[in-house]
Design a binder for these strands. Structure first.
Lengths: 198, 198
DNA sequence: TGCGATCCGGACCCTGGGTCCGTATCGTGA
DNA sequence: TCACGATACGGACCCAGGGTCCGGATCGCA
């Protein structure tokens, strides 16, 4: 097993960078005005260290994103209802997408940064694949629904970071309203016959 | 009226740049490996000329995109059915989104370039607003559908350039299949009661 | 405490968008 | 047709910002 234990200063620096990047992305106006050099400076670390630890900008952002997302993924994959596996699809799908939306609302800048980071389309991020296949599997259990693959993509597209940012930022749609709208949209897609409740 | 007539060489160069950029974007693997310098060179023009004519990279891409899109917008806003105004919403909405999807399939690289061009989220492009408000107006005529604003965004999100690229490129979904999937998805959203036809 | 392995840091490189300005071209009025 | 102001041309130039490199500092094991 070639797993060498990393040096203590290395992990300390890694944490420092992560923390610094986190606050910088949270404070900034747009993700692209937080520079790698900024992050390094804020973490009290050299650029070399930063790039050695994360490879490149995308690597850093991904690491941040995934660290934030992990609790939710856990709740979804092994947690209790309504997010966890035992929940029936008709409740679980909305719960899952609502959680995803809330995550993006709570981490707008970060999610934006990830989705717009140059060449990397969100569709080749490995976590997207997880959400998609999970969602697809659940959609397959919905009677009368074909094209679960495309449907999963389409539903996830409704929670894209820049759309969320546009609605929450420019259009000033309040959080609860947005959640309600998404929920109502999903209901329409999932269960055609009950979408017109009063 | 301060509308001075532009010089002949200026308009000639503008055309040349547009044409060169068009072919370059069509040929390239990813939009970001066609450089402004490349475009200028291919057009047989200096960089200065290019930037004077289009302002910046986004300006150039927008100009290209809108030139390509114009026929479709015309067909939608003043043309005959099934795209034009007289068509009832239940037919017109799918037709409209299908046309949009086909456009993105036919101009994948260009659409990608526009949507990922640095800071400019697709939601602040002026043509997005046109599609959105048109779609929203039509959705408002669908009985039982609330949240036409959000729904319009969600439907448009299903035709995002990078999703289309992902499906057509990585996943190799054939054109007709994708159109069918989108149509079926829209049907589900629009008319719950008829989505399970055999 | 000694010594190799590992990591640090910031000077450095390079790409690519965007600017500047001396020169060439246009087109209009005479 | 010529002259001259207005306009456009082009490519050298600038600069930010991502990514690299390597001499020196640290670590941690024996």
């Amino acid at each position: 097993m070639p797993e060498r234990k990393p040096r203590k200063d290395a992990v300390r620096n890694r944490m420092a960078v992560l923390a610094a990047a986190d606050t910088l992305f949270a404070r900034c106006e747009s993700p692209e005005d937080v520079t790698m050099a900024d992050v390094a400076a804020a973490a009290g670390v050299g650029k070399g260290t930063l790039f050695r630890a994360f490879g490149d900008r995308t690597g850093l952002i991904r690491a941040l994103y995934e660290a934030r997302l992990e609790p939710i993924m856990d709740a979804v994959e092994t947690g209790p209802p309504p997010l966890g596996p035992p929940t029936p699809p008709l409740q679980r799908i909305p719960a899952l997408l609502d959680a995803f939306l809330c995550f993006k609302l709570d981490n707008r800048r970060l999610a934006l940064a990830l989705e717009e980071t140059g060449s990397a389309s969100p569709y080749q991020a490995e976590h997207y694949e997880r959400w998609h296949s999970l969602l697809q599997a659940m959609l397959e259990q919905i009677p009368g629904l074909t094209d679960s693959d495309f449907t999963a993509h389409a539903l996830l597209a409704a929670t894209r970071a820049d759309l969320v940012e546009h609605l929450a930022g420019q259009a000033c749609v309040p959080r609860e309203r947005m959640r309600a709208q998404l929920a109502s949209f999903i209901t329409r897609v999932l269960d055609p016959r009950s979408s017109q409740k009063g």
